[in-house]
């Protein structure tokens, strides 16, 4: 891996917010690389600034210091080759647009001709198993289906990097398992690079080829761990593997250490 150039580099990124009670250090210093075609999960205790990190990575929020580079260029605003799936599926879809128009709008913004747009949208919705709800409005769908629409929109955008911010935090367990498999499939089918943020340790190990463990706030990288599970994963078999259990126990331990570290640091 070392001989390849990273697609996405986060270098000594820090973020401090200014609040009524003074500056709040959300992220102290985070550095990691993502190589082309990887599926990297970022996991950390709740409140460790995962969403802040993703906003910096996706160019929605300027970091206080440090850099994010994509394809060698510094990210200072949302890059054209990145698609984002947000946690709040209920709010990230335009309620006044049908499912099809929701998926098509970013393509219009990019100037994709109408005929091509229709084909791409249809393929993307097929990929997530939603070709039957083209003319439906998002709010008429269940939460899991809404998040599928958001994934279809990201897929149709044909990004180099797909960034997902705790996308399944608010859906039920069964739907969540289906959506996890969907992400694996999309990743393989499209050969896209995926950066997946979650607070769920099992999810990070099940999904990722690599897991970046964050510490508690003020956040640093606790560990960068390669996941040596077989490429073909399924909910029953993979989760039953001894190696899966080892990895999740390891990550769990790391996160517990991170939390204790925070308490020691605060005292």
């Amino acid at each position: 891996m070392a001989d390849r150039t990273p697609l996405l580099s986060v270098t000594e990124l820090s973020k401090t917010y200014l609040s009524a009670t003074g500056p709040v250090e959300a992220i102290r210093s985070i550095s990691f690389d993502v190589y082309p075609g990887e599926l990297v999960c970022i996991v950390g205790p709740s409140g460790c600034g995962k969403t802040t990190l993703l906003k910096c990575v996706s160019g929605l929020l300027p970091p206080t210091s440090g850099t994010v580079t994509l394809d060698g260029a510094e990210v200072t605003r949302p890059p054209a080759t990145m698609a984002v799936v947000f946690q709040e599926y209920g709010q990230s879809l335009y309620p006044w647009l049908t499912v099809r128009d929701n998926v098509a709008l970013p393509l219009r913004a990019r100037g994709v001709p109408r005929a091509e747009r229709a084909a791409v949208v249809e393929r993307a919705l097929e990929e997530v198993g939603l070709s039957h709800v083209l003319r439906t409005y998002p709010w008429q769908l269940s939460g899991g289906m809404q998040q599928r629409v958001a994934i279809a929109r990201a897929v149709a955008y044909q990004p180099e990097v797909l960034v997902m911010d705790e996308p399944f935090a608010a859906v039920d367990a069964q739907t969540r398992a289906d959506l996890e498999d969907l992400v694996r499939r999309v990743w393989k089918d499209l050969g896209v690079t995926v950066l997946f943020v979650t607070h769920d340790i099992d999810e990070s190990v099940y999904l990722g080829e690599r897991v970046v463990v964050l510490s508690a706030s003020p956040t640093v990288v606790q560990e960068d761990l390669a996941v040596d599970l077989p490429a073909e994963r399924d909910q029953l078999g993979t989760r039953a593997l001894p190696r899966f259990t080892e990895l999740r126990t390891h990550v769990y331990g790391q996160i517990q250490r991170a939390k204790r570290g925070e308490q020691v640091g605060a005292a």
Partner: peptide, 13 residues
């Protein structure tokens, strides 16, 4: 809605 604002920005609408 701030989430839709972020969505529109990241998809460059």
């Amino acid at each position: 809605d701030p989430v839709l604002v972020d969505t529109s920005r990241s998809y460059r609408v």
